[in-house]
Amino acid sequence: MIRRLVLTDVRSHADLALTPEPGFVILTGPNGAGKTNVLEAVSLLAPGRGLRRAALSEIARRNGPGGFGVAATLGDATELATGTLAAAPERRVVRFNGAAGAANTLAQWLSVLWLTPAMDRLFVEPASERRRFLDRLTLALSPGHALETTRYEAAMRARNKLLAEPAPDRDWLSALEAQMAQHGAAIAAARSETVATLSERLAQETGGDFPRAHLVLEGWAGDAAALLHALASGRGRDAAAGRTLTGPHRADLAVRHVDKQIPAAQASTGEQKALLLGIVLAHAALVGERRGQPPILLLDEVAAHLDPARRAALFDRLAGHAQVWMTGTEPALFAAIDDRATRIALG
């Protein structure tokens, strides 16, 4: 969990220091007070581009010096920091206990999951959005997943560029495809394990206030040899398309509403939100069991559109988690949470 969080020139916050306790951390205030900005800062302590997927230069405070910083002290006294310098606004800097490190290795120290209002349409969005969601779930269980994904995508970009040349170097193509096969197989295996394990856990849940979901990984699945063969035999097709048409980057996460036996995309808006919440809660419990370190949960405006009964059920389910950050415009939304919560008013 995070014991101390310091934001410097992050979005609307020139200088903000928070000392959250374990359990619920509730941020309230009017629209524009910077509540989501705080959650975004915490999300940057994990690999990737954070909950808004914003360019680094957009995170730096407008009219500020140009860079930004997010620093956190964890419960075991580990110091994590990330941000940018004014001279290089799109180059991310990461430090562990003062020493320079790589963003992909942040997952070894901290697991962070989030839900935002923009994710309410996850099941009807393009497959790429569900892949990102699945990769965050996978990363929390397999910290090395970020590095495998980064290397796969880098090799794929290089292969696509090479295929666009009139006479691409076949040996270089083979080398890039070997890299894609190695990392692609690792990505597929980690995703498959996450989906299978999470589906099994969801199937064991009975009753409750959140509908049960069943998860299936669709699209390409195979080992390194199968992917290598597919890439080598598909060069002409991929060159004509201008992109790689085979591999784990084409996978999709299919979700069904178990009780109604319908695809999640056909459920009502409220049911889709409840399905998503149920998946995240089950996954958080799974991460805690597997890693001995439950993830930090960031829930942006999660209570606003839930009825009182489901809101109370959500708080009950979250009560055992190490640290849950939630935002809302009205403190009354969180009245059912006892006094042990850290309550922070912004704006």
Rank of each mutant, 00 (worst) to 15 (best):
I337L: 07
T342N: 03
V10F: 06
A304Q: 03
N104V: 10
P295V: 00
L115G: 03
R291I: 04
P331R: 10
A185R: 05
A155W: 06
A304S: 12
A14T: 09
L198F: 09
A100G: 14
R191C: 02
L16R: 13
P143S: 01
A241M: 06
E148T: 07
E205Y: 02
G347I: 00
L45P: 04
A127E: 15
T82N: 05
H214G: 06
G288D: 14
L198E: 13
V6F: 08
D238T: 06
R62W: 15
K161N: 13
L306M: 07
H145T: 02
T82E: 11
D339P: 05
D300H: 11
Y152P: 01
H257S: 10
T28R: 05
R11A: 07
A251Y: 13
K35W: 09
A81P: 00
L227D: 00
P211L: 06
A99S: 15
A178S: 08
P168N: 07
G242N: 12
E129Q: 10
E271P: 01
A46H: 09
V94H: 05
L286M: 14
P20C: 07
A341S: 07
W109N: 04
G98V: 11
R311E: 02
P168D: 09
N160V: 07
A100D: 13
R61A: 08
E200M: 02
G320M: 06
D223Q: 02
H183V: 03
R191Q: 13
L277G: 01
L56K: 12
L276H: 10
L18Y: 04
P126H: 05
A224S: 13
A203E: 08
G48K: 15
A336N: 12
A285W: 08
V38I: 15
G219W: 12
V195Q: 00
F123I: 07
A213S: 14
